[in-house]
Design a protein around this nucleic acid. Sequence first.
DNA 1: AAATCTGCCAACCGCGATCAG
DNA 2: CCTGATCGCGGTTGGCAGATT
Length: 234
Amino acid sequence: MELRRGPWSVEEDFVLMNYISHHGEGRWNSLSRCAGLKRTGKSCRLRWLNYLRPDVRRGNITLEEQLLILQLHSRWGNRWSKIAQHLPGRTDNEIKNYWRTRVQKHAKQLKCDVNSKQFQDTLRYLWIPRLVERIQASKISNNNSSSETQQPVQLMNNNNNSILITSVTPENSSVATSSENSNQDYYQVNQSDQLWFEDYQAMDQQNNIELWMDNEDIFNNLCNNEDIWSLLEH
DNA sequence: AAATCTGCCAACCGCGATCAG
DNA sequence: CCTGATCGCGGTTGGCAGATT
């Protein structure tokens, strides 16, 4: 039997959805045959998981989701399926596409490799905190009560060639992180030994941005579809 | 207005892991 | 235990639409 390739038709989608609704997913090769689809099992699986499955989320990646992607990628690297497990309704393919088209583009603009320590540090110490700050600001301006439990972070040069990351209380939440100063801090850090990294890890254990990942409300305020990259550039 | 470029995203491919006989 | 089949993941490609030249 000749296998079909390329985009799925509406009829094929219907057949696949109908079959899975009656028989469940899995055993993709036999599923494809039994459903009468001229597609590989692999193709059926991909179509279902990335497009047809009812809990797939559509629309732009939100600020919160962008933050999660950055944080999780800094920890796990290109383990897209693992990252996707923490973004309900988003597929590994979607996250991978987002990363490649948006994040890698900015690495290119900075003339550094996306996997280089320099770029990873830029993400971790400059862009992630600024994104957290931005989200926090948007929540405060929205009078969102859930913001009380979430704290922004602040970047400080502690005169020891390391960057100190501290939480910021609501009363002094106007965090100053001009790109010039932060870049200067960043390059000083780059010349230092491993102390800064240990500092960060220690803070990581206590009260820093990782708290965000565990907040159950994080997906309850998906109000904002702004793009962090345009925000961070200006 | 036409040609070219760019961003986006669905789909395919290769490979290693896992499963089943 | 071995081997072929299948699955799942990450990398890559191709095509479309909108932006730019």
